[in-house]
């Protein structure tokens, strides 16, 4: 029982971590909360439903389509909602935040229009496959989600830590002006960051769809707020913090359902924000350093 719940918690937590990584990358580089991230995530989930359930195509094609489409959405977000507001005199520093809220409302309504308001099931062909180890049941879906999340996090860490482009991103996140003095085309890095973050959101969308077998136009908002909670928990703009924060939240939610009251499940994230802001306002992983 305990181990099963631990596995559930880690599965959920690794998805949360992927969502939070998208938030934290954009925050690190642009210093803004991308309120449209949750909705881009939701679109990723719907693309997954469309490809695998409606078109009956294999899951990997669903991932591919979701990655491509959410990446394009990320590009459009940067190009039309964020870039025009940057470095303009008289533009409030809150403007990009409001702009992303606008995009999130647009996307939510668009998905109502395109997909309908109802709940769409997301059935992976291997949804029923499970393994029995003693008294523990593990579903293949859980393993797939966990493995994809871990690979994604490892790839991102490697990319940020070891590659030239990743280092340029970290330099830009730390100090945009210095990065540009070192020859980094910061405009390109910003665009790239929003695209990568959005594509990660798209992947997370499919993973959530698979985990809960349910996709709705409203799922973006709650996931967006949780992502926000996680990066406050882990430290704004901090990559390790987003990963750890995601796992902590996933485990906490799972255990409150089992040992406490399932009604409080969604409250955990916000309780965590309050506690963290009181005790350690900079988040678990300290200052704004992006590794």
């Amino acid at each position: 029982m305990l181990i099963e719940q631990l596995i559930n918690g880690i599965t959920l937590g690794s998805i949360y971590a992927i969502v939070a990584l998208g938030f934290t990358l954009v925050f690190g580089v642009l210093g803004i909360i991308n309120m449209a991230h949750g909705e881009i995530f939701m679109f990723g989930a719907f693309i997954g439903v469309l490809v695998t359930t409606s078109l009956q195509l294999p899951l990997w094609l669903g991932f591919l389509a979701a990655i491509l489409i959410t990446a394009v959405m990320g590009y459009m977000l940067e190009r039309f909602a964020l870039r025009p507001l940057r470095h303009k005199q008289g533009v409030s520093h809150l403007a990009p935040l409001i702009s992303t809220i606008g995009v999130s409302i647009l996307l939510e309504n668009l998905s109502h229009h395109l997909f309908g308001a109802g709940n769409h099931p997301f059935r992976a062909s291997f949804a029923e496959i499970n393994f029995q180890i003693g008294s523990i049941t593990i579903y293949l879906v859980q393993i797939v989600i966990f493995v994809i999340s871990v690979i994604l996090m490892m790839a991102l860490s490697f990319w940020l830590g070891k590659t030239k482009a990743g280092k340029a991103l970290r330099a830009t996140a730390e100090n945009l002006e210095t990065a540009s003095l070192l020859g980094v085309d910061t405009k390109r890095i910003i665009t790239m960051t929003v695209i990568i973050a959005s594509a990660m959101g798209g992947i997370a969308g499919i993973l959530v769809g698979m985990a809960f077998n349910s996709v709705t136009p409203q799922m973006g908002l709650s996931m967006g707020l949780k992502g926000l909670a996680i990066i406050i928990l882990g430290g704004m703009g901090n990559v390790k913090g987003a990963m750890a924060g995601g796992l902590i939240l996933g485990l906490a939610e799972t255990f409150i359902v089992v040992y406490g009251d399932s009604g409080y499940r969604d409250a955990i994230a916000f309780l965590a924000i309050i506690v963290i802001l009181l005790i350690r306002p900079q988040g678990l992983f300290g200052q704004k350093i992006s590794t």
Partner: peptide, 8 residues
């Protein structure tokens, strides 16, 4: 002020 990348 040198502007070292403090986190790198």
């Amino acid at each position: 002020g040198r502007q070292i990348l403090a986190g790198m």
